[in-house]
Nucleic acid binder design. Structure first.
Lengths: 188, 188
DNA sequence: GGGTACTGCCTACCCGGTAGGCATGACCTA
DNA sequence: TAGGTCATGCCTACCGGGTAGGCAGTACCC
């Protein structure tokens, strides 16, 4: 529901029209948004009584105003944390999990290819950060969004490394009774 | 497309029926999967020539076999890295990005609530890891999946802390020419 | 005998996301 | 000046992901 709530949050600041919402959303979150989705979402919001639409202005725009119901939903959204449990599937984790159990799959190659791509993304993000910082735009929001992606990607790379070493350990069968030192890792 | 490809990967190992696929998928990936989605996905796979269905057996199960086309799609999936760019929206990042720009929003409270929830999730994960390790199941895949969630959540907490300090810095307007030490952060 | 629970299937419905079509106006260029 | 392109602005159609729920058979237990 990020789109629904995101649009509502923007409408909570001031009335806007669809195309304008798309632009604002992308500029603030850095997340590309298809215009079509804006209009369908707006009609759902109108259906649910969260916004009211004014007829098209003489220049053709349809402005949307938020209602009390909509305002309540926004504050609800802002004050409720995003629970880890109801996040979309992690495609990478699923892929590796299924690959581990399959024969005819070269785990090392998969991990290697993934790490290469993740490191490339990491480079892109740092380049963007440098540019954003240098241009003096000083767009705090944009910098924070970039940081989020950097942090996530770093975690991904670390996890990939972790997987690789774990898989190597598993290849040579476990010692009869695992020597001490394993416990520390488990309770990290 | 994680579901589609995940089911295909399971079918590449051996023929299975819908309900069984749900069970295997959840057991291996730890990701809950609605049965209805399995059946709709299977029919799409059949439509696309990736699998063929046999009529219901005497006990009522419909077994699905993978085809050459399906096999090609699986290996394609396994060998192509998951690109950072085409991942689902990051609801948390979007929320915070929009909150920064809004008045009447208590950023500190939002971040605080989110961190509390993330730390709770982190605790749950470590508990699960301990249990998985202690029971001697030694289910490597499940441990790796748990590690993925741990790494991601740790990154999230770090990012939240990062956001908080950045926002505090931004409140008191930046010094005329930022003192050294900032550059190191940007190019980290 | 009836409640509960599991296996096994299928349909309906909604949201997210993409593609694409349509119209207007600005601006550039042959 | 006519035609190309691009941006603004709207809308619809279509597909995959995801959830809810219904239906039937079996098993098990009180």
């Amino acid at each position: 529901m990020s789109v629904r709530h995101g649009l509502l949050a923007l409408l909570a600041e001031q009335p806007r029209y669809g195309y304008e919402l798309r632009g604002e959303f992308e500029a603030r979150t850095g997340s590309p948004l298809n215009v079509g989705q804006v209009y369908t979402t707006l009609s759902r919001l109108e259906r649910d009584g969260c916004v009211t639409a004014s007829g098209a202005s003489e220049t053709g725009q349809r402005y949307y105003q938020i209602t009390a119901v909509g305002r309540a939903e926004v504050t609800q959204w802002f004050t409720t944390p995003v629970r880890r449990e109801d996040r979309p599937r992690d495609e990478l984790a699923i892929k590796l999990a299924l690959a581990v159990g399959s024969e005819d799959v070269d785990m090392r190659a998969i991990i290697q290819a993934q790490r290469t791509d993740s490191l490339r993304a990491l480079q892109d993000y740092t380049r963007l950060k440098v540019r954003a910082g240098a241009q003096g735009t000083d767009d705090l929001t944009w910098l924070l969004v970039l940081d989020a992606m950097v942090f996530q990607t770093e975690a991904e790379v670390r996890w990939l490394d972790h997987c690789e070493t774990r898989l190597v350990q598993a290849r040579r069968p476990a010692p009869l009774h695992q020597p001490a030192g394993e416990g520390a890792e488990v309770t990290r």
